[in-house]
Each structure stands twice: as C-alpha cells, then as structure tokens.
Design a protein around this nucleic acid. Structure first.
Lengths: 191, 191
DNA sequence: CCGATATGCAAGTACATGCTTGCAGCAGGC
DNA sequence: GCCTGCTGCAAGCATGTACTTGCATATCGG
C-alpha cells in the first residue's frame, strides 16, 4: 500500500510542475524511486495514474469550516479566508497546471465538488446564517456574494506570484481588505 | 508580412489548446497552412515563435476605459466590468494555458503589465476619483478593492466553464452582483 | 523449503519531437 | 535574362515517448 501512495504523490508532484505532457513516466518513476515498469503494473497507463493522482490530491484537500452560529463575522470570516487562501496558495502549482490542461483533458477536472466550489458553498450558507441572525441587512444574492469573495481569494492565490504589479500589499492585509469589503457589501456593520 | 502574422496567430491558437509542449511545430505549421521549415526560417526556434505569439496576443488585448469624471458609478462600473469579463472569457483558453505553463516557462509571462493588471490599475484610479468626487465615503484601500473586483472577474472568466456548480447564475447577473457588492463595500450609495 | 507475488533490470517497439540539409520552383527587380 | 529572396518538398537525425516482454531476484505465507 505504501508504495502505491508514494507513486501517486510523486505523480502529483511531477504533474504539478510539468503538466500532463511533461509528466513522463520516466520522471515520475525517478521521483518515486521506483522502476518505470512498476507504474504500468500498478496503474495500467499514464492517464490512469495521473488521473488517480489528481483525484487523491483533490480528495485530501480539506478546508476549514465556518461557525454554525455566527458571533463575530469579521473575525470568523477573516480567519476562514486566510486559511482558504493559504490552502489554495500551497496547491497553486497543481491547480494552475490542471487549469492549463483543462482544454485537452477536461475529464481530469470533474465539473462539480472541487474544493473551491465546496468552500464557496460553505461561505454561501454562512452568509444565509448571518442574514437569518439579523447580522446582515443587505439583500444581495448570497451565492453571487460567495462567488465574489471566493473568486477574489482564488485569483489572489493564483496570481500573486505571476502578476506582481497587481498584488502589492501583503496577503494578510489583502485578505482583511477583501473580507471588510465583502461584509460591508452584504450589509454587515464593521468597524 | 502577412504570412508572419498568420503564423503567429496559428501558433497562439495551437498553444492555447495544447500548451507549450503540445504545440508542436508540425501542428502550428499545419494550422497556418505553411511548411514546417518556414517556421524555423522566420523565428529560429519554437520557443521564440511561441514567445512572440503570446506577446503579440497580449499586446493586442486592449481593454475599455473608465470615465475620467464619474457620474453614475453603478452604470459605469457595470458596463466596464462586463466588457472586461467578456474579454477575459474570450481569451480564457490562452490565459489558462499560460498559467499552466508558468512553472516551466515563467519567462513567457512577464510579471508586469498584463492586461489584467492594467485593468486593475485603471479600476484603482477610478476608485480614487470616486472618493475625490465625494461619491465614495469608505476608507478601504483602493488598490485592495480593485484587486478584489478584478479577482472576482478573473476567477469568473476562468472558472465558469470548469466549476459549473460554483457559477450558477447568469454572467450578467453575477457581474451586477459583484459591482453592487463592490460599490457598497467602498461606501457608494447604490439603489 | 516451496510457491506465489511483487519488484528491478535490460532491451526493444513504434512513433513523435525539434531542427537541419539539399534541392527545386517561383516571384519581382535590375 | 538573370539574380536574389522566399517558399515548398522530401528526407533525415538524434532524442524522447508510452508501453511491452522476458528474466532474474527478493520477500513472505504456508
């Protein structure tokens, strides 16, 4: 069992760096410290291997949760958003590579249940809770609002090291700014 | 001169579909309706060709402007944001591929002056104008605010066809929602 | 100790890749 | 008419690719 996982982890690493075409079976085998034939004996083909590696990586990515009974929206959301951004940033190479390969291999990215989408769903429900608790007065569509904050975090995680002229302030300050704007936008009073 | 541009356009198309490794000189030549050797006679190497093709594409992408004297922030911003989203969506395959290749070929994506960053800069200046005109009362960092809206638009353009469970409402409604949230966030009164 | 299973190693297959070379045609300018 | 510059065509080269086969070895349960 251990060897299988080592191969999967190696495949994910090489794939994140070089994409589907660049992730050659030789490189993956070398990265895993394993003979090339072993890959084929375990997974049959390169496609299956990489597909499974991405799936495992996606499943292993678990995100923090937002409180069921909101008390301090600003603090709670900031902490959550920082955690989400951190996770996305850690996996940014893999995520970017997947996006780049989407045109050629859409089957590698199932259209539902991505960590990003799950995070947005959690956020959406939190916004509804805020509203029910009377903490948010606005009438914005919570789903669109969630997409907006989530999109800002996603773009930040993906683009901060690429477009250095766009993201000049520190990540923490940026997240604080996003959350502040978001809360004011949905009608939450914030200092 | 015409042939050169035809080759560049073909290279950009093939690259957007398959990435650097997948964009073989044979495919580009076929797409351009040109013999393979012609590519090398004109550009020397595949790297130079693709690099130039991406550069040309990036330069050709020009974005709308925001009014110098803001009058109707909601209408102005919505129109602008829709145009930006449309542009990004048109080029999403190319942009995603570039992001995917960033790990291997960072030199293809100069860290400054990307269309996205330029749009964010324009947006930032617009926010400052709003504030000077007394239309915005908030004290949020305009640069962070601009990154947020721009990030939301960027993520929408990149992710709408990938994460279908995240983006359920129509693009126009989403943009309207982003802008509304943004304006309320920076302290602009909105209906 | 035996047999089954898992792995490594060496070699090979059929194909694709970036790039080069040599030669033929075909246009326009002098 | 002839020269020059551009293009196409055919072939080739060295390398890399996914994947296969055959055989030797190790490990472990019975």
């Amino acid at each position: 069992m251990e060897l299988r996982d080592r191969i999967l982890a190696a495949a994910a690493r090489v794939y994140a760096e070089t994409g589907f075409r660049g992730a050659t079976t030789r490189r993956i085998a070398a990265e895993a410290g394993v003979n090339e034939v072993t890959l084929f004996r375990h997974f049959g083909s390169k496609s299956s291997l990489i597909s499974e590696a991405i799936g495992a990586e996606r499943g292993a990515l678990l995100l923090g949760s937002l409180p069921g009974e909101p008390a301090d929206p600003s603090a709670e959301l900031t902490a959550w958003a920082e955690a989400v951004l951190e996770l996305l940033r850690e996996k940014r190479a893999l995520i970017r590579t997947c996006m780049g390969d989407f045109e050629e291999h859409p089957e590698m990215m199932p259209p539902c249940g991505s960590p990003t989408a799950r995070a947005a769903e959690a956020l959406c429900e939190y916004v509804e809770r805020l509203r029910r608790a009377g903490l948010a007065t606005g009438n914005a569509d919570p789903r669109v609002a969630a997409s907006m904050l989530m999109g800002a975090l996603f773009a930040d995680a993906m683009g901060r090291d690429i477009m250095t002229d766009l993201y000049r302030s520190a990540p923490d300050e940026a997240v604080a700014g996003y959350v502040r704007l978001f809360l004011r936008g949905i009608g939450v009073e914030v200092a």
